[in-house]
Every structure is written in C-alpha cells, then in structure tokens.
Design a binder for these strands. Structure first.
Length: 760
RNA sequence: GGGCGCAUAGCUCAGCGGUUAGAGCAUUCGCCUUACACGCGAAAGGUCCUCUGUUCGAAUCAGAGUGCGCCCACCA
C-alpha cells in the first residue's frame, strides 16, 4: 500500500523520457515543415516567420560534457519556444571532426597502448581516427537525445561529409583566386611534440623563471634568455635614439663566437626598448617572430633567416659541435662554454628573470618559434567587413561586453595560418608546380588548387608536381558551418550541379530551400571561449562567401564551474557528467538547473544540490497535475465550458491575471535572451502562486459538500486552464515532464505539447 | 603593457532610478492537513564593498579608492 502510494507520487522519468523523445521524433515534430502542406512553404513562412539555430557541432572525440548540456538547454529553449509560437523552426544538428583536438585525443590513446601516430601511414591513421570519431558521433547523438534536443536529425551534418568538403574547397579556391591566400615563410608556433604549427589562438603563455644571460658580441654586450639561438643571429639591433651605440650603427663589428670569429651588423630599429638589458638585441629572424619582423624592415641591410633549430627542437649543423642537442641542454652547455671563453658575463646573469613562455595549449610543451612554409589568409580586408556588419547591427551581440572584445580583437588581427601538419582533417587541395615554365604559373607562384589528382600543371604543363599533405585548421572549415550546412541540405538540384561544376565558384547562384529559408540564421549560441576561434571566423567567411552575415544574434554562454568556482576538469575530479545526472535526476532537472539562477554571459555555477532542487520542482509539477486531473468531473470538457457561465472568485481572477502576466513576461524574457528570468518567473508562478495559493484555495470548494455545481465547474475550469498553460510555459525548459502530463490530459487539442500554441 | 567585468542574505546569484531589496540552496521553529514530507505553514538572516557627487528620490547613474576575476599582447 505504502509502496504503491510512493510510486504514484513520483514522476517516473526513467521510464518515460526515452518514450517521450520517440513520440516527438516519430511524429516528425522536429522538422521545420511539420504540419505544413506541400511546397507552399513560403506562404506559411509569412504567417509565423522563421527561426533557425545551427547547433555548434560537438567534437566527435569524446562523450558530451556539462558544457554541451548548456548549449542544448539554451538552444532547445529558444527552439521550442519559437516552434510553439508558430514559426517555421529549424535546429540543425551536427558533429565536428575537430582536427587537431581529435588527433591529440587519439594520440593519447595510442600512447597508452605504447604506440605513436608516427608509426602509421597517413591512410591507416586517418582510417583509425575516422572509425574513432564515427563511434563517438553515435554516442553523442544518443546523448543529445537524452537531453531532449529537439533538433532535426534528418538534416544532421558532419564536418567531413563530402558535400561539406566540397563547399570548403570552393571557399578556398575563391579565396585563392581573389589573392587572399598566400604561402610564405613566417615564424610560426611549432609544437615539437605534436609536430604541427599552431595558430596564435592555440598557444597559451606560462610564467617561467629563466636565467637572463649577458653575452658579449665584441664591444657590445646584450641580454638574452636564449643563447642557443645565437648561431642564427643575423644582426644586432638598437634603438636609433640610443647614444651608447651610435658609433656602431650601420657598421659590421668583429665578434668572437664559440665557432670562431665572425662579423655582425648593428642596425637601428625603433621597437627596441632602451631600458631593457643593455638596450641591444640580437636578431634571430628564423626563431623569433619579432626578430623576423625586424628583418622584414631591414631586408636590404642584413642577411635573411638562418635556421638553427629543427622541427624536433634540436640544434642543426649551424651549431657546430652543439648539433643534435635539444634546446634546453644546448642552452646550458652553450652558456657554460661561453662563460669559459669570456663571451658571457656570468656575474651579470639574472637568475630570477621572470617572463612568459609560449606553450602548446594541449600538451604544455614549450612552443618553438620556427620559420616555416605555411598557408595564410590575408585577413584584414575580410575583418573590415565583419566589423562593418556588426557596426551596422546586422549581427547583434546580446552582450555589449563581447562586442567590445570582438572589435578589439579584429582591429589587431594578424594573418591566419590555416595549414596544419596533421593527418586528421580536410586535406588542403593544393599542388605545387616545380617548373613554373610560364608567366601565368609564376604569377601563381606555382600553386595549383585542385581536389583531384593532377599530372600536369594546368598553366605551364609542367609535370613535376608536389602534392600538399597539410590539412586545414579545423576552424577554417567550421567557420563556414552555417552556410555550408544549409546549402548542403539540397537533395536534388544543387548536389548535382555542385558535383558537375567541380570548382565553379558560384554555387551560391543556386539556392536551395533551406539556404534560402534560413540564412542568415536567427541566433548563434555558443560558449564565449570560442568567440575568436569560431564565431568571428563564421562572420568573416559567411560574409565573404554569401555576402550576408551568417546569423543575426550572438548569444555567448559562460563556462560551467563547480560550487567553488573552479573550472571543471577530469584531473580535478570535479566534473559533473551530464548523462550521469540525467540518469539520477532526469533531464528536466538538469536543464532547469542550468538556467536557474544563472545569468546571461556569466559563468554557470553548478552543483548536484542545484539539480536535486530542480528535481523537486519536477515532482511538484507531477503531483499538482495528479491532483488536478484526479479532481475533474468525469464529463469535464474545457472546450464546452463557456467562461461567462462561470462564477469566478476574487482568487480565481487573481491567478488568471498572474498567469497572463507570467505568460507575457516569460515570452519577453525568452525573446530577449533572459532565459533565467523566464525560468524563475514561471517556477515561482507555478509553485508559489498556483500550487501554494490557488490549489489550496480551490480544495475548499472541491471538497465541500455544500459547493454548487457551478462553483465546482468554475474551480475545475480555472485549475485546468492554469495547469495547461503552465505546461506550455514550462515546456521549453522542462520538455519531458510537461509532455508527460500533457499526454494524460482528458482533452488534448494537439497530439503533443511540443506542437501546441504558446498561450495568448 | 592594453582592455574589460564583478563586489547585494551563510552559499550561488537576480534586481539596475521610484512602495517595506528578492529567489534557490542552507539554517531555525511548528506540522505525516485525503496532490506532493522531494511537502505545507512560519521565522531568522542585508551599513546592497568604501568614500564623494548627480537627483525630490540611488543597490541602481557619475567619479575616486579597495578587493577579486577575466581577456588580449607578449620586449630580447
């Protein structure tokens, strides 16, 4: 008996959630054209408008973490709300191959097995990672469903889908034809462990204490932390205003080195800080980005870069007897030897010199700045357009804060290195002609864009061709995600045309209904940590390829932290596994906890307590619903009751008014991206106004034997009406419990709550 | 070095010019009242960081200070 009662009073989320998701999915409710007949979609559009979110594709290299649950929750709230508002609504899901990130994860797994990526051929490695991501992708899809994501699975895309790659190639070719791609020697961030270049964004800085040595270059003494790079020095630079060195300016001075006597030129450059060290700097253009720029300014005066460190972080033959030593060993050895020979002043060495050292953001290995051939995008002209679009309000940040950061970053943007020396990714469709037999070919610097194997240079007919093996920076392809995903939805005409046109760049002349209908999308919702990596690039590439911004609003959510404000990480052991939580408390509780008490753009503080608290709210909804549905007369039918025949009490009128206010406020708050306010408002309305006040008040009338039929009818009508509308208001936040209750209503106007109309 | 944000109840945060400053969690007290004890009813808890100004009126706007945090750039 007690057991029986217990089971009744708890909402059996475990049993119901999957079934409810199936009900939605099988009903086709996630599809934008659900309930709309035939091809007349355009007229339908006019009525309700449209709403579209392209899901930030999770990396297919690990199960979902709590951060993913945040985006699912926020985006699903918007999607469900606008769907109920009658809009043609699309939430397009996807998964990201996540080039470097995935390769790093996979490499770690190999390492655990005592293997290395370098023992596999490109093809084998690619296949292995492919299988790995496909497996992960499946897992992720299941997890997104568990969280209640009402996205249209029939439109799901993967960043390595052939049609996506096709579009990425066309973008690349257009950039190339417009002269915005160049291949050149630049000092790039090289990760010695991962054997690839990294963009500036993929580099973090660590404060370290290293000795600052004072070395003697003939009569000039200068400070450096990196004496091991001295074999690559091509000049000494001083500030033009520095009187101490005036007599040496423009002259070659005789110096002694560990490898014998040499000559080196002294030049003047304004960037040199007279205050630091001795005011004189050795210039090593092959291994320092700033020095490289000095060389660029003084090309005519001094020799070009001399490489002394190889890709494995070891000194090469330029370093004489030090060849083969690793940077760290070499530094110590060289400093010692120089001191012995009087080339270094040991008494001046600063052993407490604090400075920042660049490290790989994934493995923490010290970045070796290396000069190397890489592909770059000339980003300035593109960045300008992105800034203009934001200034004009074509794209709106929901937070001014991020808008400022956006402008600051774009103003100072540097060319984007898009080539990565890794296997996992989209191969750069580039060939290099070694012969360059005619002008046309020379003009292109021997670069040929082709995604197919070619045997001949199309310009000079030369047959000595080298194929590029690098892959694109993942963000280059994901930066095209909004238009690429929508364009690639075309089932018939476009696909054919794209395939037959090979590299015709005007695929955008062919419109597909999805691209036409949903581009620009309504909102880009993602974490602020990828503002530069992703959001900015989408704006840039979106405008470049389509002439229009990719989305109208940008909503950036914060990081999920634990209750001590710590970042969640596996090593700290403070991670909350969203799927584990769903198992324990149900998806609704997790979703509600993620919006409740958190405000836009700020970090989200999450603890299990908070989720448990929301589960209690789920229980409350369940029990209130049980009470209401259990107290309706058998023949109760709300559609047959006329409001003018009711005898509404003061309290009845009060709750109906509150309902109206809450409906209005919740709608406004969701539309203005204040999700927490909408959630809290509705929560408070339902629990503390409706349940605590109205239901208690109504009991008197329901239980009393002296109540008239009219009074009974009135109370039933009121509580039923408020319940049904509350379910609608709560549905975007807590889709499962609300749908579960809706399915039990005696008179459902629609087959499911998800396709109900938002209350008026 | 450049830029930005935050400071409100024990904790996490709302509120951002107008009654007595709110919520969730935690705390205390009373209740197994026929929807729910994952509940109900009540209570306690706040110089809204400090100072100065603007205003009829400031937690809310401005300036200065203090503390905390973040982002960008990295100079040998």
């Amino acid at each position: 008996m007690i057991l029986n009662k217990y089971m009744q009073t708890r909402y059996p989320f475990k049993e119901l959630e999957d079934k409810i998701y199936q009900l939605w999915e099988k009903g086709g409710y996630f599809k934008p054209d659900f309930g709309k007949k035939g091809p007349s979609r355009k007229t339908d559009l006019k009525k309700g408008g449209r709403f579209c979110i392209i899901m930030p594709p999770p990396n297919a290299n690990a199960p979902l973490h709590i951060g993913h649950a945040v985006f699912v929750t926020l985006e699903d709230i918007m999607i469900r709300y606008h769907r109920m508002k009658g809009k043609t609504t699309l939430w397009l899901p996807g998964a990201d191959h996540a080039g470097f990130e995935t390769q790093v994860v996979f490499e770690k797994q190999l390492e655990k097995k005592g293997q290395s990526r370098f023992q596999f051929s490109r093809e084998v490695l690619y296949k292995m990672i492919w299988d790995f991501t496909q497996k992960n992708k499946k897992v992720m899809e299941g997890q997104l469903k568990k969280l209640g994501a009402s996205c249209d699975w029939s439109r799901e895309k993967f960043t390595l889908d052939p049609d996506i790659i096709k579009i990425v190639y066309q973008t690349f070719e257009k950039l190339f034809d417009d002269g915005l791609i160049y291949r050149g020697k630049r000092v790039i961030n090289w990760c010695v462990k991962h054997q690839t270049s990294l963009s500036d964004l993929e580099v973090k800085y660590e404060e370290r204490i290293d000795p600052l040595f004072y070395i003697k270059y003939g009569p000039i003494e200068l400070a450096t932390v990196r004496p091991e790079t001295k074999f690559g020095d091509t000049a000494i630079a001083v500030n033009p205003k520095d009187k101490r060195y005036k007599k040496y300016l423009g002259k070659e001075i005789e110096i002694k080195t560990l490898l014998g006597p040499a000559k080196i030129k002294v030049i003047a450059d304004e960037t040199i800080d007279m205050e630091f060290g001795t005011g004189a700097v050795k210039i090593t253009p092959a291994h320092d980005a700033a020095d490289f720029e000095v060389w660029q300014r003084h090309k005519s005066e001094i020799p070009g870069p001399k490489i002394v460190i190889d890709k494995f972080g070891r000194l090469n033959k330029r370093a004489g007897q030090y060849k083969g030593l690793k940077v760290k060993e070499a530094r110590q050895k060289i400093a010692e030897d120089m001191a012995k020979k009087g080339l270094l002043n040991p008494s001046k060495t600063d052993h407490n010199y604090k400075h920042n050292v660049a490290v790989c953001y994934k493995c923490g290995t010290t970045i070796e700045p290396l000069i190397s051939d890489q592909l770059f995008i000339k980003i300035k002209p593109l960045a300008e357009k992105a800034m203009t679009a934001v200034k004009k309000g074509e794209v709106k940040f929901t937070s001014k804060h991020f808008e400022k950061i956006f402008f600051h970053w774009l103003k100072n943007i540097k060319d984007w290195n898009i080539s990565r020396q890794i296997v996992w990714g989209i191969k750069i469709p580039l060939w290099y002609c070694q012969e360059k037999k005619n002008k046309k070919c020379r003009d292109k610097n021997g670069l040929i864009v082709s995604d197919k194997k070619i045997k001949q240079c199309p310009y000079c007919r030369g047959e000595k061709l080298i194929e590029e093996t690098d892959t694109f920076d993942t963000w280059f392809s994901s930066g095209q995600w909004p238009f690429a995903t929508l364009l690639s939805q075309s089932r018939s005409s476009l696909k054919l045309k794209v395939q037959s046109s090979k590299f015709r760049k005007n695929i955008f002349n062919y419109t597909t209904s999805d691209f036409e209908t949903f581009y620009p999308t309504s909102v880009m919702e993602t974490g602020w940590d990828i503002l530069f990596f992703w959001v900015v690039r989408m704006i840039i590439l979106g405008i470049y390829m389509t002439g229009r911004v990719p989305f109208k609003h940008i909503y950036l959510h914060g990081l999920v932290r634990d209750k001590d404000r710590q970042k969640m990480s596996k090593s700290k052991g403070n991670v909350i596994d969203p799927l584990g939580v769903v198992e324990l408390y149900g998806a609704d509780a997790l979703r509600m906890a993620l919006v409740f008490g958190t405000s836009a753009q700020k970090d989200i503080i999450m603890s299990e307590d908070k989720i448990a608290a929301q589960q209690r709210f789920v229980t409350k909804i369940w029990n209130a619903s049980r009470f209401i549905l259990g107290n309706l007369d058998k023949n109760f039918n709300p559609s047959k009751i006329r409001q003018q025949n009711l005898r509404l009490t003061k309290n009845d009128k009060w709750i109906l008014k509150e309902l109206k206010n809450t409906t209005k406020k919740a709608a406004k708050d969701i539309e203005e991206f204040h999700f927490h306010r909408a959630a809290e408002e509705t929560y408070h309305f339902f629990w503390h106004k409706f349940c605590d006040k109205t239901l208690e008040d109504v009991k008197k009338r329901l239980y009393s034997k002296t109540s008239t039929l009219k009074d009974r009818q009135t109370s039933q009508w009121v509580i039923y009406k408020v319940l049904v509308d509350s379910l609608k208001l709560l549905h975007p936040f807590m889709p499962f419990i609300t749908e579960a209750v809706y399915q039990k209503l005696p008179h459902k106007p629609k087959k499911a709550l998800i396709i109900e109309d938002w209350p008026k």
